[in-house]
């Protein structure tokens, strides 16, 4: 007998128990100030936040934050992720943000390569102020039916506290994260 049928058989042999799925969860209180909450969450998770009407306006600030660094703005597909190793600053578009935790939904349709947001040294993400949802429930509501081959919620720069619980930014992924709210 294959392990598959052995495992499924063992489960099926158990007494049937009727327990219903509780249904979708609704968060209690809709926030009034999505952008304000989002910005607050960003500061908690250690991201830099810049408000700018458009990419041109953000430019000045970016060259201040990341002077003399190689910036990569293309969304063209890069087949071999290793080629992105040399990228200092990667600029990408996020689809929407989540106010309660500062997470941004990134889908591989809008990434040059899946590894891009991880392998670069610094990450810049553009998010529109009009695209902020309150909680993860609204986020998945919004994603309903939209599937990506690979996607993620990203919140803040990569971090670790594995040495004596002292927080260090920049473990394996990006060392800094800048969000440009347009």
């Amino acid at each position: 007998m294959s392990s598959r049928s052995e495992i499924l058989g063992a489960i099926q042999a158990l007494e049937k128990r009727e327990i219903h799925h509780p249904g979708d969860f609704k968060s209690y209180k809709a926030t009034q100030d999505l952008v304000g909450d989002f910005k607050n969450s960003l500061s908690i998770v250690g991201a830099i936040c810049i408000e700018a009407e458009n990419k041109q306006k953000a430019e000045a600030r970016l060259s201040e934050i990341y002077p003399d660094l190689l910036r990569y703005t293309s969304h063209d597909v890069v087949t071999n992720g290793l080629e992105l190793e040399a990228v200092d600053v990667l600029e990408i578009d996020g689809l929407f943000g989540v106010a309660e935790n500062g997470a941004i939904w990134l889908s591989d349709q809008f990434l040059p390569n899946r590894v891009a947001p991880f392998i670069c040294q610094h990450l810049v993400i553009y998010v529109a102020k009009s695209e902020i949802v309150a909680t993860l429930h609204e986020a998945y509501e919004r994603l309903d039916g939209h599937y990506a081959d690979f996607a993620l919620f990203l919140s803040g720069p990569s971090k670790t506290a594995d040495i004596e619980q002292s927080l260090v930014i920049g473990a394996h992924g990006a060392r800094s994260l800048t969000i440009i709210l347009t």
Binding site: A103, G156, P157, G173
Partner: peptide
């Protein structure tokens, strides 16, 4: 509030 990365793997690249 959430882990830095919550990655959703659906298909191989």
């Amino acid at each position: 509030l959430i882990t830095t990365y919550s990655s959703h793997f659906a298909k191989p690249r």
